[in-house]
């Protein structure tokens, strides 16, 4: 058993080494515990404008649907929720990079959206919120007639 532990220590040393190499190679690696950038927060999001709608995507691995709330008030979208700790019972922890967290983030939308035409889907740990723009701000094609 003792020999086994040594093997595992060696494993951790290799893991550390790789991790450091990774961190050097990619300066935008997401690291829990590192201070959040002033403009960002948890979760980080991607916001897209498809013309007719805004689409927000947020990485929320391990967040259960029941622990997640998405709300829209006027033109402010709020995401709130938590990820619970998922440490298994009866195990010794060797490495814990994945921390439980709580979050609440609000986003002011650039234009009005139609509250009746919104959807939120959580799939593979990614939340996708689709907000259709209000009719009056949707891009409109203007037919050109020959005068």
């Amino acid at each position: 058993m003792f020999g086994y532990r040594n093997d595992f220590d060696r494993t951790l040393a290799i893991m550390d080494q790789l991790r450091r190499r990774m961190d050097r190679a990619f300066d935008d690696v997401d690291r829990s515990g590192a201070p959040e950038p002033a403009t960002g927060g948890v979760p980080r999001v991607r916001f897209h404008d498809t013309g007719n709608a805004f689409v927000l995507k947020a990485d929320l691995p391990g967040v259960r649907e029941a622990d997640l709330s998405v709300s829209l008030e006027q033109d402010v979208l709020t995401l709130a929720g938590q990820r619970r700790g998922d440490a298994p019972e009866g195990y010794a922890a060797y490495r814990q990079e994945r921390a439980p967290f709580r979050f609440s983030r609000s986003f002011a939308l650039p234009t009005k959206v139609d509250p009746e035409k919104t959807s939120a889907v959580l799939e593979h740990g990614v939340l996708t919120v689709t907000l259709e723009k209000a009719a009056e701000v949707k891009p409109r094609q203007i037919a050109v007639r020959v005068g």
């Binding site: 997401d30 990485d59 440490a87 195990y91 010794a92 814990q96 994945r98 593979h124 740990g125 990614v126």
Partner: peptide, 22 residues
Amino acid sequence: TAPLVDVYENDKEILLIADLPG
């Protein structure tokens, strides 16, 4: 990018948990 992981061990196994959103 390197995914974040937890590593656990008991008598029977090593359990590795990794965040792989998307």
